[in-house]
Design a protein around this nucleic acid. Sequence first.
DNA 1: ACTCAGGTATCCT
DNA 2: AGGATACCTGAG
Length: 267
Amino acid sequence: MEKTFTDDFDLEVIANSGQCFRFNTADGINYTIISSEKMLHAASLGSGRFSFDCSKKDFDSFWSGYFDLETDYSAIRKLACNNDFLKKCADRSVGMRILKQDKWEMTVSFIISQRKSIPAIKTSIERLCRVCGREIGDGIYSFPTPREICRAPVDKLAECGLGYRLSYIREAADLFYAKKDEFERLSLLDDEELLSELKKMQGVGDKVASCIALFGFHRLNFFPKDVWINRALGEHFPLGFDHDAYNPYNGVMQQYIFYAYRNSKRS
DNA sequence: ACTCAGGTATCCT
DNA sequence: AGGATACCTGAG
């Protein structure tokens, strides 16, 4: 099916914003997107037109929510105008959206992310999916459930290049095994309580918990601070970042800075 | 060969 | 409370 969007929607920007790790392309036009146990081929046709290889029913019931189509991102982007550097970042990030991704997948993915480069994170995640996910397409594997991770032999999991993070992931899988509604309970908490609950997991500190909250729980005011954000803040916000000015969309501003600053600094 | 990576836990002072 | 250090492993 085809769709035309007038609001911000750029697959390349989203794919390289660090919020998702299974959003792949070979040509910058055609994307394979995997989320949890679903897969989608999406292609940019130009002029805001996109094709998606799914039924209208699948699009409306799942992918529309995944792409957060009910939120007006061009309106949020205007908040960036009060600061020169932030505005420049936002102008380079037109098309950015915060995906509504699976809470469990975000939890495991960002536990894996610590002290790893993005290519290394992707490699580990793909291996994990291949080792204990289900094949949902030709060589495409679902993200493993807590149950599937618990059942996987440790020597197989050890082949995923997870290093010291493996014990963290197995603990998290134990915690959520047979507790599918645990995430629903967490969804009821306010931002502060959610953060502290997430940090009770081993291997989940401030940064990882913020990413889980922002990308998995869609709490758009979280502002994860990674090395890139810290560098950008140090260079361009010597007096501090005025979080009050962007409430409740600090997380979107973070994505603008991450995407624009990181892309400008990489060779 | 060697450094560093979207950090966190732990051990200090 | 705040600073230093170790940590698995893979990408460049």
